[in-house]
C-alpha cells in the first residue's frame, strides 16, 4: 500500500537533483564558452612573445640576463599547484593533486629542496587534511584572472630566482586541449627554456640593445606563461564540471526511468489488490 508512495517520493527527489545538475551543466557550458574564448584570444600574444624571444636570445646573452640564467643543478624548486575553488567537477582536482604530488616526490628523489604553493580551496583542503605542509596557500584568484593576478603568483618566485635562492619553478595546471580532454600538465616556468630559432635570420635593427630588450621581455614572458596556465586551468575546470554534470544528469534520467517502472508496477499491484479485495468482499456478500 505504502510502497508506491515511497517510490513516488524518491522519484520527486531524484527529479529535483536532476534539475540542479542540468542547470549546473548549462551554467558551466556558458562559462566554458567564455573561458575558451579567453584561452584562444590569449594565444597570439604568447606565440608572438615566444617568437621574438627565440630570435633575440642566444646563449651568450643568457649569461647576461639574470632571469635567463640556467642553473647547473637544481637545488631548490618551487611547485605551484593550481586547483579550483569549487567542487562538483569530477576528477579535475584529484588529477591535478596527483600530478603535483608525483612531481614533488620526483624532485625530492633527486635531492631537490622543494617548496609547495597551493592555489584554490580544493587543493588546500586536500593537503591540509593529509597533513602535508604547504609554503603558501591562496584561494583569492578570481574566476576571470588577469595578468596582474599572474604577476602576483610568479613575481616573488622570479625575484628569488634572480637572487639565486631558487633554481626552478614549476606550475601544475590543467591543459585545455578541447572540451573533453583536459589532462593535468606541468609547465617549467623557471628557468626559462628558450627555443632558439634556427635557419636564416633577418638582420634586425634593435633599439635598445638585445640585452635591454630581453631584460624587459623575459618578465613579460614569465608572467605570460603563468597567465596562460591560469586561463587554461579555468577553462578546463568548466569543461570538467560540464562533463561531470552532464553524466550526473544522464544518470539521474536513467535512475528516474527505473524508478518510474518500479512505481508503475507498485501502483498496478495496488490496483490489482484493491480489485481482488472488492471482488472478494462482493463474493462474501453474495454467498
Amino acid at each position: 500500500m505504502a510502497k508506491s508512495r515511497d517510490v513516488y517520493r524518491r522519484m520527486k527527489s531524484v527529479d529535483n537533483t536532476k534539475k540542479i545538475t542540468r542547470t549546473m551543466e548549462m551554467v558551466s557550458t556558458a562559462k566554458l564558452r567564455q573561458a575558451q574564448r579567453r584561452v584562444i584570444e590569449a594565444r597570439p600574444y604568447s606565440a608572438q612573445l615566444n617568437d621574438v624571444i627565440g630570435r633575440l636570445a642566444t646563449p651568450a646573452l643568457a649569461e647576461l640576463a639574470p632571469l635567463l640564467r640556467q642553473p647547473d643543478r637544481i637545488e631548490t624548486a618551487a611547485v605551484v599547484l593550481l586547483t579550483s575553488n569549487r567542487g562538483l567537477c569530477g576528477a579535475f582536482n584529484a588529477n591535478l593533486i596527483r600530478t603535483a604530488t608525483k612531481l614533488l616526490a620526483d624532485l625530492e628523489e633527486q635531492g631537490t629542496q622543494t617548496e609547495f604553493h597551493v592555489y584554490g580551496n580544493k587543493g588546500i583542503s586536500y593537503f591540509r587534511f593529509r597533513g602535508i605542509e604547504m609554503d603558501l596557500q591562496r584561494n583569492d584568484l578570481p574566476d576571470r584572472a588577469g595578468t596582474e593576478d599572474a604577476k602576483s603568483v610568479i613575481d616573488d618566485l622570479a625575484r628569488r630566482f634572480v637572487e639565486g635562492q631558487l633554481d626552478a619553478a614549476y606550475v601544475v595546471f590543467a591543459e585545455f586541449r578541447n572540451m573533453v580532454s583536459t589532462p593535468p600538465a606541468v609547465r617549467q616556468v623557471l628557468p626559462v627554456a628558450v627555443e632558439e630559432k634556427s635557419g636564416s635570420q633577418p638582420f634586425y635593427i634593435l633599439d635598445p640593445s638585445a640585452e635591454e630588450i630581453l631584460s624587459q621581455l623575459v618578465p613579460l614572458y614569465i608572467t605570460n606563461s603563468t597567465f596562460s596556465a591560469m586561463l587554461e586551468t579555468a577553462a578546463a575546470e568548466h569543461a570538467a564540471r560540464r562533463t561531470a554534470m552532464k553524466s550526473a544528469t544522464d544518470n539521474a534520467e536513467e535512475f528516474l526511468n527505473n524508478l518510474r517502472r518500479t512505481y508503475n508496477r507498485a501502483r498496478q499491484a495496488e490496483i490489482t489488490n484493491q480489485i481482488a479485495e472488492i471482488i472478494g468482499g462482493a463474493d462474501a456478500l453474495d454467498g
Partner: peptide, 12 residues
C-alpha cells in the same frame, strides 16, 4: 614611424 619597406626591427 614605420612605412612600407621598413627594415626588420625590434624596438622596445
Amino acid at each position: 614611424g614605420i612605412l612600407y619597406g621598413h627594415a626588420p626591427m625590434v624596438v622596445l
